[in-house]
Nucleic acid binder design. Structure first.
Lengths: 135, 135
DNA sequence: GTATCTGCAAAGAATTTGCAATCCT
DNA sequence: AGGATTGCAAATTCTTTGCAGATAC
């Protein structure tokens, strides 16, 4: 994979973000720096970076894909009320992975744990919809 | 939700299937029974059934959505070589859910655990691609 | 009777792709 | 130089939706 300033900027934006950006969000952000970048380029690079395991793709029912850096192990939590995507800490999953690899004879190289529920804010009644439409 | 023979057949197909069918697969299967059913009806009903928690939607990176019955608790495993979707047994996740609910003050109502890796068949070199294209 | 559901076809939304020009190394 | 990458726009793919007629209750 050859260097390009577009890809460098895209990776930087995903790494710096704490909101699990979508392709569109990354596009809007990178545009500030490279105004004539195209959305196609953003998609191409997000795919390339995900294939190279430099970022992680999060697929969510009824929503477009989100992308995430891979700095720390964590789970994802999707609030079914405000449709916001949060991180949940933890890496308890490794024991489970080990057990499954033994018992099921598969080799596990990656995982995605997605919880659904009601976030703290929405439980308190402060429900907000951050413009994320329900598919 | 009112009865319809279309929805009944769709639910029956998902419940009877052991391959986590896509909307298209369900459509092809139900068509054997109700030849003039439309794909739109299949989509509408899969959505309605998933909203009613009668079936589960599985969103996978670079693949269309799959649907699954909810008979037993299990995880999903996606082989990155043959792109086949398998079940993995277990429900170890409940302790984790409990802990996270306490510590993070969220209410968790559902979850999806998706592992990636190489399935048994592909490890043995018998890799097959079941016509599931890579997005 | 009437609200829900269906089939059909068209629309919509997200993502990919072909191509000529440009950029890395 | 030469292959990778880009911007642009068109194409593709999956899914949703509007509507008129059919169906459930």
């Amino acid at each position: 994979m050859r260097y390009s300033k577009q890809r460098e900027a895209i990776l930087r934006v995903v790494n710096a973000s704490n909101v699990h950006p979508t392709a569109e969000m990354v596009y809007r952000e990178v545009k500030k720096e490279i105004p004539n970048i195209s959305l196609g380029t953003v998609y191409r690079n997000l795919n390339a970076l995900a294939d190279a395991s430099q970022i992680k793709r999060i697929s969510i029912p009824k929503d477009v894909d989100h992308f995430d850096h891979r700095h720390v192990e964590h789970y994802h939590f999707c609030c079914t009320k405000c449709h916001q995507l949060y991180d949940l800490p933890g890496s308890t999953i490794h024991q489970l992975i080990h057990r499954l690899e033994q018992e099921e004879s598969v080799r596990i190289t990656d995982y995605e744990v997605l919880f659904y529920g009601i976030c703290q804010k929405c439980q308190k009644g402060k429900e907000e919809n951050y413009g994320i439409k329900r598919k």
